[in-house]
Simulated scan of single mutants.
Amino acid sequence: MKRKLITLLIAVVALCGASVANAQFRWGSIAGVNVNTLKFKQDILTIGDAVGASAGINGEMMFPGIGFGIDIGLRYEMLGATLNLGDYPMWESQGYASKERINVHNIQIPFNLKFKYTRMQGFEDYLAPIVFGGPVFNIQAGHTKCDAIKFSGGDLGLTAGIGAEIFKRWQLTASYTWGMTYTMKAKVLTDYSARNRTWDIRVAYYF
């Protein structure tokens, strides 16, 4: 029994190694725009959406024949929101305006599982639909100065998206990211923290 188990494990490792060896890997550049808002634990503060941007590099590793692959990347993304601090006495008394724009500059590392449908009798050379999803790690490299807010230094999100590959080089995608951990919190309130909610549209070109 033990010998059969060892044989099975060796076969699985060999198959995984063969899949990785046959995987098609390529790099590309990526850029896009986003619309972000903040979701606080309680609806005390009114929030306005803000438009940001992103740019960086992306890597794609696809396994031939099954349509599945992995996306990894390294990019800069600016996420923002408008906090209406001046509408509330606790912040208005400290001199904050009714609309305070907050920007957070992130170094972003996504790790997505991807499925690309390529069994379309050659039409996939022109257009191939894709879906993807996975975690994204944000490291805060900078932010707007606001003494009312304490920033976390980084956060974790979960992304789901769809898109299409065009002429095997271009990829146009749209995605939504739910913040899973807090990105900032108010200093004057206990445990009043916010998570990102982000729509992204991106264009990538693979070499």
Results as ranks from 00 to 15, higher is better:
124 E>H: 13
156 L>R: 06
100 E>A: 01
128 A>D: 04
111 F>A: 15
187 K>L: 12
144 T>H: 10
118 T>H: 11
102 I>E: 06
141 A>R: 04
197 R>N: 12
201 I>F: 14
117 Y>Q: 12
158 L>H: 05
178 W>P: 01
101 R>W: 05
135 P>C: 08
175 S>F: 01
126 Y>C: 09
98 S>H: 09
111 F>G: 12
138 N>C: 12
156 L>A: 13
102 I>P: 02
171 Q>H: 12
98 S>F: 07
172 L>W: 10
201 I>S: 04
162 I>K: 01
205 Y>V: 15
202 R>W: 02
163 G>D: 07
115 F>K: 02
171 Q>M: 15
126 Y>K: 09
188 V>F: 10
103 N>I: 00
189 L>N: 01
112 N>S: 06
107 I>R: 08
121 Q>S: 15
155 D>P: 05
181 T>G: 14
106 N>M: 04
139 I>C: 14
126 Y>D: 05
156 L>K: 02
147 D>M: 03
153 G>F: 03
176 Y>H: 03
118 T>G: 13
187 K>Q: 12
184 M>L: 06
195 R>F: 06
130 I>N: 02
161 G>N: 01
113 L>W: 01
136 V>A: 03
169 R>L: 14
97 A>M: 10
198 T>D: 11
170 W>C: 15
125 D>I: 04
131 V>C: 11
125 D>F: 13
100 E>T: 14
180 M>P: 05
182 Y>N: 06
138 N>R: 02
128 A>N: 00
134 G>E: 05
201 I>V: 14
102 I>A: 04
103 N>V: 00
199 W>I: 13
121 Q>I: 11
189 L>S: 03
107 I>P: 03
116 K>V: 11
101 R>P: 09
137 F>Y: 10
131 V>K: 01
188 V>R: 09
145 K>E: 12
180 M>R: 11
179 G>S: 11
114 K>L: 07
122 G>Y: 12
118 T>P: 07
157 G>F: 00
192 Y>W: 09
110 P>A: 02
169 R>V: 12
102 I>V: 14
140 Q>F: 05
97 A>I: 08
108 Q>V: 15
204 A>T: 10
160 A>F: 07
125 D>T: 10
141 A>L: 01
105 H>L: 03
185 K>M: 07
105 H>K: 02
197 R>Y: 06
178 W>S: 00
102 I>H: 04
132 F>R: 00
156 L>V: 14
122 G>D: 15
189 L>T: 02
99 K>D: 12
158 L>D: 00
125 D>N: 15
140 Q>R: 08
177 T>E: 08
105 H>W: 00
155 D>M: 11
192 Y>S: 08
172 L>G: 10
191 D>A: 03
193 S>Y: 11
101 R>I: 09
192 Y>A: 10
171 Q>N: 14
100 E>G: 03
125 D>V: 06
194 A>N: 01
147 D>Y: 07
179 G>C: 09
134 G>W: 05
184 M>T: 07
107 I>E: 05
129 P>I: 04
189 L>Q: 01
159 T>M: 05
145 K>S: 13
142 G>F: 02
150 K>D: 15
101 R>C: 06
127 L>A: 14
137 F>N: 05
155 D>A: 13
128 A>Y: 04
104 V>Q: 06
153 G>C: 05
111 F>S: 10
160 A>I: 06
160 A>W: 01
146 C>M: 04
131 V>L: 08
146 C>F: 03
103 N>C: 02
